[in-house]
């Protein structure tokens, strides 16, 4: 019964408390190193002499996290629906806001990237459109969460919504990338990492890891708040503030 001990909010609360500072240290170190490496160790002049590629570090990290956290949200929702464990629902609810914020950073930096490289603030390029749609899915999830008062129903309903969203997402991806099947040449965009110089790639990955640690830290903090809110009148919470 070693691991399942932590599926009870009462045990998970102190565990999360201990983990949070570790994730914060990891996040600060990784992001600092990633950005330092990105700004100082990468070649000063790139082939097309554009200095704005530094935006990529934040943009790639944030959009990865935006997508990854949506996946986590769906996962925790699914686990909650199957095992009916309250904690997994709490994790799903905690992930939503951080995921939405990460997606917001990805969207804004994507728009700025569009401005510097294509000249317009918004370009209906499939990737930008998809991250806009993912943002709508986040907003829909959070709207449903806050519209339902009873926590049990809110958790389950939003878990179903997240599942529905993730089921339709591939179809949306296909329809955005290939709106006109007649002349839809290549659906698979070549991954934009092929020609990237090693140092930039390293900086990008390290920054992304830093964003991942940051997301975990904030999600754990929010989960602790949710646990306190929902278990406010239990015995162990009352003891909590004694020490």
């Amino acid at each position: 019964m070693s691991l399942f001990k932590y599926s009870a909010p009462m045990n998970f609360y102190p565990l999360a408390g201990r983990l949070i500072p570790l994730f914060w240290i990891a996040a600060l170190l990784l992001i600092a190193f990633g950005l330092y490496w990105g700004f100082f160790e990468t070649p000063y002049v790139l082939s097309d002499q554009k200095q704005y590629y530094h935006i990529l570090f934040v943009h790639v990290a944030a959009s990865w996290m935006g997508m990854w956290l949506y996946g986590m949200m769906v996962f925790w929702g699914l686990v909650g629906l199957i095992f009916n464990t309250r904690l997994s629902f709490m994790m799903a609810k905690a992930t939503a806001v951080t995921g939405a914020l990460m997606q917001l950073i990805a969207l804004v930096s994507g728009a700025v990237w569009g401005k510097v490289s294509w000249g317009t603030w918004w370009e209906w390029d499939p990737r930008l459109t998809l991250s806009l749609i993912l943002m709508f899915l986040y907003i829909g999830y959070i709207a449903l969460q806050s519209a339902i008062d009873d926590p049990r129903r809110a958790d389950k309903a939003s878990a179903v919504l997240a599942l529905l969203g993730s089921a339709v997402l591939p179809v949306i991806y296909y329809s955005v990338n290939c709106p006109n099947p007649n002349e839809c040449a290549s659906l698979h965009q070549e991954s934009s990492f092929k020609g990237v110089e090693f140092n930039i790639l390293l900086a990008m990955l390290v920054t992304a890891l830093g964003f991942w640690a940051y997301s975990f830290a904030t999600i754990l903090m929010r989960v602790r708040n949710i646990i306190l809110e929902r278990e406010i009148n239990t015995q162990w919470v009352a003891q909590l503030s004694k020490n």
Binding site: I55, V58, V108, S109, V112, V116
Partner: peptide, 9 residues
């Protein structure tokens, strides 16, 4: 642009 994004993040 670059520092704007960094600041926002």
């Amino acid at each position: 642009y670059v520092w704007g994004i960094m600041l926002l993040a």
